[in-house]
Structures are given as structure tokens and as C-alpha cells.
Design a protein around this nucleic acid. Structure first.
Lengths: 213, 213, 213, 213
DNA sequence: GATGAATGAGTATTCATTCAT
DNA sequence: AATGAATGAATACTCATTCAT
């Protein structure tokens, strides 16, 4: 019993809750460093030209530590992609909410998208650079976007607010492909076009391509 | 005299020209089998999930034989991509030549593109599936297409035949991204939309997005 | 009180310092086994008839482990050669220091050289067996020896203590070639001559060839 | 019968003997080209950094042809080495025959050796560059030379014409090692020393090292 | 929770050699 | 005698993943 005492007294200084949150904080910090390293490296080199050792090294942890936080490389990638998508969607939704008419909403959403890409080039490279392997993971991202566009479109068609000659599924894939390629192309070298030009061109294409003639 | 004939024919089998062409024919056949196996496998799994051993095995040759025909995997891929692009371009150019006006030309080119994809699904998967590694090789393909669209567009703008508010570089990337994504999406499962729907939707988008309002 | 002691000692096993040194010790042991296996195999078969798998197998480790310790086969070889040279040079320098006159020094150095070879036959085979590939790595060894002989010789010539008709560069190559070949020949089968005979003959040749007539 | 006639008449133009010698001449020419290519390539890169394809290519023949003339790479190497040695020995023997006294003979042999090396740098690189693999083949060369020196030496000792304190076997290895290294060193860059310096230094060393004091 | 040494299957590539033509 | 396409074993090197400490 006495033997345990000193141990107890040391533990008494930190309540279990505090101890747990300290451990949790440390764990979260390590996890965060791995995510950050992954973002950097995946953006630069793509999914399969990055090794788990590279990520652990850049995160400043031992290579085995990687597997205490992620089951494998793809999971880390998925996590990064999901975080990115969530951030992007929040940004777009908020921009959308402030718009009064349809044209304004399209422009606002496009502006939000381009601004996000401009401010998060690393993430953008991951989200929009097309990588077959990555796609196995992130295709959900663009597919989800396409699905949401298609839904909106179908609803608008039902309301008679858009020209129905355009197939919603095809159109949504077209829009997603267009946005992804332009953004991937622009983020690779932002001097290729001014941000205003990108926003304006993408907005006009969306409006002309989706509005009745 | 007649007797000499068979002798001649026997010798004919040994003339360098015939011998060479027999060997050359065998060589070409093997090369063709490797190209075919490569097309299959790359279409299914992408550039880096296919090994040179896989390709050799599917071609029914020893693994070393691969290297008698291609310096490495990328070269095989490049060859396949170039062949595909040449075939596709020929098809589009020929369709284009038969059109009388601009709208007809856009539709004809789109029809040719979709027909090619429909008839060469394997090739289409390679050409339009976005693979970062493959991109290092085939990006030329889409980039070349984009560049040619941008050039045409600039010329039309100079002639006043199209609305100039759309930046040619951005627009061309947008069109290429749109076409590539829609075709990749469609070829992955052609029941997703009828061929007519795909042609029609893509044609209308191109016309509305590139014509003056 | 006593109870705490073992606890302490258990904790001691987990302190970073101890953990690190345990890992480091294990790492060093593996590295040592690889070096030892390399010495054995290189001595028997030469640089390029030994594979990294052979070395790993003889060291009792997996083949990938080799690359955790050496970047490639040549690096392992270089390491072995450098260690051997350092040991040999130390031996010769120490023998040299104890000699009173020039003849004594030549004999002492030769004795040290022959003794080293006798005691380290594996290393000797590597150092003195002439291998073109190995030479790219170890030639420094014999060349360094030759250069040092040439320097000494030039200095002695300047002091008038040796006959100057012998070109220092040619002479030093001659001596190095002589020593290397005799030692390689002898170590291959030490019954070919007694150690005393080798020492004596080499000493006399050096003295007669370098002294004034 | 008639069938055979034309064949006969054609054959009649060349007697079997002539035909055979024509074929033999052609065969010998191919063999000679392979030997020549081998000499070039082995001298530049050593035994195992040269492929049989390299040799066939440089000889201007198909790769399979190599095996019609040599059972494998080592046999070609052996053949080249033997030819070289024979040429060298003839040269030395002839030089030796013209000498009147022992000192003159040593100088004459050394001059012949150095002249041969100077005139046949390719061969010299093969003969004197120490290559473990090559050694498995050519060691006979230097060993034969060493054996002949040792024999001569033993005979001279028996006649009392040389100092017997030097062990013949050790001495012969020493001389061979010395000559091989100096010549390999010199042929690698003949500006390192003048031919006269090389001859003179090697001659003096041999005389001082082998003569009574 | 973290470490980092070790694993070993996987992959590209080479090259001596064979053999049908 | 010559050809040259094909073979396939050999080999260096990588990297996701495990596990004892």
C-alpha cells in the first residue's frame, strides 16, 4: 500500500481527466503534425511518390508512430481530403447564402472557390490534381460535388427555372471537370491568369451553359 | 529450267530480305502483343499499378522481352498514348472537314469524339482518366488539345466571331476539363447516359459557352 | 524502500538514453555482422561476385536490412577497406617509430606488414588482391602508399641520402606493386614460403633497390 | 542428274578446297573482328563491364554469331590474353637473344617489355591491369612469367652467379608485381614518366635487387 | 504513446545464352 | 555460317508495415 502511495500522490497532482486530456493533446499534436506533413508532401509529389517514412520524418516522429495514428497511407490521404472538402464546402455554402439572385449566387460561389484555392494551394493541388490512385480515395470529392450540382439542376428543371435540354448528370460532370481542370491548371502557376479573369470566365461559362438561351 | 524454280524458291526463303522480314514480322507481332497487353492493363489499373512483368505475362512473352521493344514502362505508355491521340485526331479532323457551319462543326467534332470513345473504351480510359504519373506523359495530349482550342479562340476573337469576354486560355482549359471528365465518367459505365445525350449536352454547352450571348 | 529500487531500475530501462543505446547497440551489432560477412565474402570472391543478398544472408538478416546500414555494396566495401587501411597504417607507423636506423626501419615496417597480413588474411586478400572494380574504391589505398613512398624518396634524394638515379614515382609504384603481389601470393597459400623468408626477401630487395650501390 | 548439273557447274568454278578456304577465310575474318572488338572493349572497361552484345555489335555481327566462335566470354578473353602473351614473349626472347652479358640482357628485356606496352596499350591494359575476374583467366600469364623468373634464378643460384639470400619464389613474385604495376600505371597515362625513365628505373631495380651486393 | 531497427515481398532491369529461320 | 528475337535467372534496391523495447 505504501509503495503505491507516492505514485498516488504524484498522480493526485493531475486528475485523471487532466492527465487524459494532456495525453490526448499530445496525441492530437502528433496527429496534426502528420496531417500537415502529409498535406505538404502529397501536394508536391502525389500519393504514391511519398513514403510513410517521408511523412514521419517531416513530422519529426519515428516511422512506426505513423501507424499509431493512421492505419495506412491511404487513410491519411482520405483524412486530408475530407478535411479539405469540408473546409471548401463551408466556404462555398457561406458565400452562397449571401447571394440574392441566381447569377449572383453562381458568381459568389465561384469567387469563394477560387479564393479558397488561392489561399490553400497545397490543398487545392491535392483536391484538383487528378491522380488515379488518389482518385480511388478522393473521387468521392468531385463526385459528391457533381451529385450535388445534378440534384440542384434537377430541382431547378422541375421548377422550370432552367433549360431542360441539358442532361443533369452529364452537365454536372462537365461543370466539375471544367472547374477542377481550370483550378488545377491555375494553381500550378497562378501567373497564368489573374484571379479576376479566372472567376469571371468560370462564372460566365456556368451562366451561359446552364441558362436558357 | 523448271527444276531451278523450286531451288530458287528455296533460296528465296534464305535471302536476307525475306529472312529479315520474317524476323521483323515476328518482332512486330511481339511488339503488338505488348502494346495490346499494355492498353488492357493500363486501362484497368493505371500506369503505376501495372508492372512490366504483368504486361509481359499478358503478352505471353518472357519478362526480358519487354525491354527488347521498349526502354521502360513509360515508353510503352507514351507509345500507346501517341497512337491513340493520332487516331482520335484523325477522326475529329475528318468529321470537322465535312461540316458546313460552326454549329455543325462543333456537333460533328463532338460526335466523332464520343464515337471514338465508345468504340475504343480501353484507349479512352487511358487518354481521359487523369493519372498524375501518366499525366507526365499524356498531359501533352490534353494540353495540346487545350492549346489548339485557345489558338482557334484567339483567332475567332480577332475576327469578331466570338464574344471576347472569355479568356482563351481559361476557356480552353475549361473545355478540355469538361470533355475529359464527361468522357471518363461515361466510358466507365456507358449506361449512365445514352450516347445521344452525351453528344447533345456537350455540343450545347460548347455552343452556348463560346457563342456571343 | 527496497521496493522502490526495482521500480527505479525498471524505469531506468525505459529512459530515453537507455532505450536509445539499446537500439543503437542492436543497430551496431547488425552493422558489425554485415561488415564481418562482407569481409568474408569479398575476401573469397571479390567485389562483384558477391551480392547484397549473400551478405545479408551470411549476416543473418533480411536483405532489406543491408540498405539500412549501407547505401550500396560499394559503400560497404569502402568501409571495410578504410578500416583495414587504418589498422594497417597504425601497425606500420608504430613499428617504424621503434627503429633506430634506416635499415632497421625498413625491416621493422616490413615485419609489421607481413605480420598484419598473417593475422588478417581476410583483410589482406581484400587490400592486396587486385580487382578492377574494387580498385575504383581501394586504389586509393595502394596509391596513397605509393605517393607516400615517393614523397619520402624525394626528400631523401634532396638530402643526398639515396641514389637519385631512380625516379621516385616509378620506384614507388614498383615497390607498391612488389609488396602487394608478394603478399597477395603469400596469403593465398602461406605454406608457399615461411614468414621469415618473406620478410627477409622483401627487406633486402627494398634496401638494395633504394640504397646507393 | 540434270538437277544436280547446274549446281555442279556452279560449284565447279570453285574447287572444294577453294570453297573451304573461302569459307574459312570468312569465318576467320569474323573471328578476327570479334577478337579485335574484345581487345578494345576489355581494355577500356574490363572483363565484366563488357557484354557479349557489345562485342558483337562492335564487330558488326549478330549477337548469336559470338557463340559460333567462342563458347563464352571468358574464352574470348583467354584467347586474347594468350595471343598477347605469345607476342610479348616472342618480343622479349628476341631481345634477350641479342644481349652479351647479364646486365645487357636485363636492360634489353626491359626495353622490349616497355616498347611492347607502348606499342600495344590496349593489350597492356588487359595483361597488366589487375582484374580479379580476368585474373582467374590471365593469372596464368603473370604466374607463368613469375615461374620462369624463379627457374632462371634457381639455376643462377646453383651456378653461383647470384646472391642466394633471396628466395627465388618470393623474388619472382616481387619482380612480376613490380613490373605489372609500373606498366599498368604508366600505360594508363604515359605522360607520367618518359619511356627512358621507366626502362632505366626498372632495369636498375632488377639489377640491384638480384645481383650480389 | 513513441521509437526505430528489422522485415521481406515486390519491381525494374540486365545479360549470357539458345534456337528457329 | 550467320541472324536476331526470345529467354529467364539473377540482382540491386524500395518501402509499407511490424514489433520488441
Amino acid at each position: 500500500m505504501e509503495v503505491i502511495a507516492p505514485t498516488h500522490s504524484r498522480e493526485a497532482l493531475r486528475t485523471p481527466a487532466v492527465r487524459e486530456s494532456a495525453a490526448a493533446r499530445s496525441r492530437a499534436a502528433t496527429r496534426g503534425r502528420l496531417l500537415s506533413a502529409g498535406r505538404n508532401l502529397f501536394a508536391q509529389r502525389g500519393l504514391h511518390r511519398v513514403t510513410t517514412h517521408d511523412i514521419a520524418r517531416m513530422a519529426g516522429v519515428a516511422s512506426g508512430t505513423f501507424y499509431l495514428h493512421f492505419t495506412d497511407k491511404r487513410e491519411l490521404f482520405r483524412e486530408i481530403a475530407h478535411q479539405s472538402v469540408a473546409a471548401l464546402q463551408a466556404r462555398i455554402a457561406s458565400a452562397n447564402a449571401g447571394a440574392s439572385d441566381r447569377a449572383g449566387a453562381v458568381r459568389a460561389r465561384t469567387e469563394a472557390l477560387v479564393a479558397f484555392v488561392d489561399e490553400n494551394r497545397e490543398l487545392a493541388r491535392i483536391l484538383f490534381s487528378a491522380d488515379t490512385d488518389a482518385a480511388a480515395v478522393e473521387s468521392d470529392v468531385l463526385n459528391a460535388l457533381a451529385a450535388s450540382i445534378a440534384d440542384t439542376r434537377r430541382q431547378q428543371a422541375a421548377e422550370g427555372s432552367v433549360w431542360t435540354a441539358l442532361d443533369p448528370a452529364v452537365l454536372s460532370q462537365a461543370l466539375v471537370g471544367m472547374l477542377a481542370r481550370v483550378l488545377a491548371w491555375w494553381v500550378e502557376d497562378p501567373t497564368r491568369a489573374s484571379r479576376e479573369t479566372v472567376v469571371d470566365t468560370l462564372t460566365r461559362i456556368q451562366l451561359s451553359g446552364t441558362h436558357p438561351v
